[in-house]
């Protein structure tokens, strides 16, 4: 398991022991969101670090340049890894339903923005859809599973649906 922001914060090599699972859960429980992410660069770094061919599962909001993201993902594929990308997004981030003056305070070092969100909704949704479309297309071309996940949906349902889809596609 790898935890990263603008660099790799934690790298836990693969292992099959039960203690290893406890270690991963412990790390996940204690991790704190921090600096701005540079996902593309980190993917390259990781691709070089992981020597054994395996299944790479990326869980991220993917808030980065899609070109860099896809380039990093291609690197994984070049190393013969199988890649699954779970893009985790809040429901508000997917619909942008605000209707009054709002001060948006950014994580990861972004400058805050005071605006009437009704006036920006259209542009925002265009950006979101362009990004998603780009990611879907790039992943499909590289035989990467791209799974957008809305946090309002139960995780077990989403994962079950994905696994069922994956199972079906393996038998075809």
């Amino acid at each position: 398991m790898v935890l990263f922001d603008n660099g790799i914060k934690k790298f836990i090599p693969a292992s099959a022991s039960p203690a290893h699972l406890r270690l991963i859960l412990h790390e996940l429980a204690n991790v704190v969101p921090d600096q701005r992410t540079d996902v593309g660069t980190i993917f390259h770094d990781l691709a070089e670090r992981i020597k054994r061919k395996g299944l790479i599962v990326i869980i991220s909001d993917l808030f980065d340049d899609p070109e860099k993201l896809l380039f990093g993902l291609q690197h994984f594929r070049h190393k013969r890894h199988e890649v699954i990308v779970f893009q985790i997004l809040d429901d508000f981030e997917m619909r942008f339903p605000f209707d009054s003056m709002t001060l948006f305070e950014g994580y990861e070092g972004w400058q805050e923005l005071l605006c009437d969100p009704r006036a920006l909704r259209k542009g925002y949704m265009e950006e979101y859809e362009q990004f998603t479309e780009k990611m879907k297309r790039g992943c499909r071309n590289n035989k990467i599973d791209f799974v957008p996940i809305n946090t309002k949906n139960p995780l077990d349902v989403v994962l079950s649906a994905y696994l069922a889809t994956r199972l079906n596609s393996k038998f075809k």
Binding site: E93, F98, S100, M101, L103, F104, Y107, W110, L114, Y124
Partner: peptide, 15 residues
């Protein structure tokens, strides 16, 4: 106005 902590700032700023 109300304050919101917002992650997808890059899309918001682009819009």
């Amino acid at each position: 106005f109300k304050k919101v902590l917002w992650a997808a700032m890059h899309w918001l700023w682009a819009a």
